[in-house]
Amino acid sequence: MRYTYEGNGYKGWEKNLDFFGKDFLVELFYKMLRIRMIEEEIEGRYHDDFMKTPIHLVIGQEATAVGACSALKYSDLLYSGHRTHGAYLGKGGDLKKMLSEMHCKSNGCVGSRGGSMHLIDPDVGMAWSSAIVGGALPIATGAALASQVRKENNVIMVFLGDGGTEEGVCSESLNFAALKKLPIIFFCENNFYSVQSPLQTRQPKRDIVRWAEGHDVNAIAVDGTNVLDVYKTARNAVEDIKNGSGPWFIEAKVYRFRAHGGAGDDSKTGYRDIKEREAWEKQCPVNSYSSFLMRNNILANQQRLDMERKIKIEIKDAFDFALNSPEPQKTDLYQFVYAD
């Protein structure tokens, strides 16, 4: 096993419950559970072949999506890389529009021009995503520049992975954000693998947070499996930025329980140890948080079952909606090459 969990789970977090409030604690759980169930349904239906789009599941990475996005308002903008499902849903994106997009329908969130890697919904501040690693970083930085010049008083967040830090444009974006003290959070989900290439074959053994600090941005590491740690840190960063701190870089170590793309896990191909995945599954963001809430009498088992039932209905409705949605027409192809 190369990469092991080094956090402390929810140990000690029971002292902070009042800080969050009970309703909010439950809401965080609901959001994570919903993303997990949506992803599992997408995975289960993938081989029906109605979703003719690559998929990059966030199963195992729900705490980062929900924790980070919950620190943002609708007017704050989110940008992401190819693994968009969690970001889109975490920011409040519409499930029907998402599934329609994944079914290549004309009423998808971007009219069947993007597929699963380009889940965008300006109504909720899910601003844009790029399928080129690191591609969204300068675009988000530019959005932060626009916010600063236009005095919009909002915060921009951009998701990247460990691979994204290797792109030259990541350093270029951090440098410019630091130079101009831009209102932006670079949120790095370090899941240790870029497709099947482990971090150790791509980077020297070093602390990504310290590397980020070298660009003169504020940087901190969080436990990416712990939604409360992620939320609290992201919220602090948002407040700090509103007080003029300039950019933040947050590294969250997480693990994807599935392959880079497609349905199922591909650990058995040998690029990573199945035991490594199993060890991280013990820190499953959804279940570890569920246990924590139940231990502290904030969530009851029946409540979780009720939530699951409700989410199941929502998912079925959304899939039915997507499957029955209209196909794009030939004339749609030629739209939006140039802007009016």
């Binding site: 601003a127 300068p138 675009i139 988000a140 520049l145 626009a146 974006s173």
Partner: peptide, 21 residues
């Protein structure tokens, strides 16, 4: 004036343009 970061600055301009600049 800008840093010598052509790709970064092109993306920054793109992102700023998408946000009304």
């Amino acid at each position: 004036d800008t840093p010598l970061s052509e790709e970064g600055m092109m993306g920054i301009c793109t992102g700023a343009a998408m946000r009304g600049m």
